[in-house]
Design a binder for these strands. Structure first.
Lengths: 188, 188
DNA sequence: GTCTATAGGATGATAGAC
DNA sequence: GTCTATCATCCTATAGAC
């Protein structure tokens, strides 16, 4: 019951689950990728669910922390949105497999882990929504439906992980600058 | 072996797969939702794979057709992008469950259906990329990395289905107008 | 900490009666 | 066209030896 070994399991599982989805990856698949037998996994984790919840909660907490920090900072709404874009890029670079699982397999969580993740997601969106609404009321953001703005920015940021390989040679800071420009100022 | 009955099966399967994913929905689940037994499904379809491929190929072909039409039209690059946004909204409204499955479960397709769908997706992206590059070279689009623009617009459009319920009362034409405005002109 | 063996249940699919 | 019965296979997880 070694904590390091557990992290190894979760990490390998993450890369398999990213490619095929939670239900298509068996304990045997995970074990094989570690060159051990499936039964041996249970010395380090309680079951498949624990792998899923570790994986998802790790990155969900990261997003929650960062968003709470931004919300409390003394910045204009537009500056806050820039910061949100930046933290999404940073977290995506470091946790791209966890994000894939958070996006695609959160509904396979059970019990309290499911509730917690759904709550974190709702809070995150609500924080973002408030920033956008404040920006609109202060005239810093063009008054469109705030939901359309929230949705279009967030859906781009949430699927950044799909693009993480293609990024490859592209510098993270260049990507941040371009992404901020495209999402805030458009393309025309 | 009635074609209407097959469509019913595919339609019901689509709504279940949208919620839980292909691998989490069993033939027994699908049968139960139709008030028949699992074995009876096989009088109308050859297997679970056929449900998946019908579902995905139907909507993938729709996107391919519409994109080919746009590519051949006599419009400016910016007008073409507007058209792309509009057809995504139209197709999403009419096929939201198929799109969920196309996005999340395409990798569970097998054999020639997999190859075909991957090819259609690549061709679609390539058409879109050409439009953006032409817009940049003609000065109609600000010269950012075309891949950043392609990715940010396409990821928003591809996940529109997640937003289809929330849209609810929002008129489709208003949504089109706002989405075009946000994606092309930004929010500042 | 890893193994073999296996329990106990779900799954996709088929055979054959009605 | 739907049913019951069933097969072969896969799954998560546990027990107990080393």
């Amino acid at each position: 019951m070694n904590a390091t070994r557990k992290k190894e399991i979760v990490k390998i599982a993450a890369s398999l689950i990213k490619e095929k989805g939670y239900n298509a990856v068996s304990m045997r698949d995970i074990a094989q990728a570690m060159n051990i037998k499936a039964a041996s996994l249970y010395n380090h984790i309680s079951g498949k669910q624990e792998i899923l919840s570790s994986l998802i909660i790790e990155v969900a907490e990261k997003f929650t922390e960062e968003m709470n920090t931004i919300a409390s900072e003394n910045l204009s709404p537009l500056q806050k949105i820039e910061r949100v874009i930046e933290i999404h890029i940073d977290i995506t670079v470091n946790y791209s497999e966890n994000i894939a699982t958070l996006n695609n397999d959160w509904m396979h969580l059970e019990g309290s882990a499911l509730k917690r993740v759904v709550k974190m997601r709702e809070d995150y969106e609500e924080n973002f929504r408030k920033i956008i609404k404040k920006g609109i009321s202060e005239g810093e953001i063009k008054s469109k439906h705030p939901e359309v703005i929230l949705f279009s920015i967030l859906s781009t940021l949430r699927t950044l992980y799909l693009w993480n390989e293609k990024r490859g040679k592209m510098d993270v800071n260049v990507l941040k600058k371009d992404m901020v420009a495209v999402l805030l100022k458009g393309i025309v």
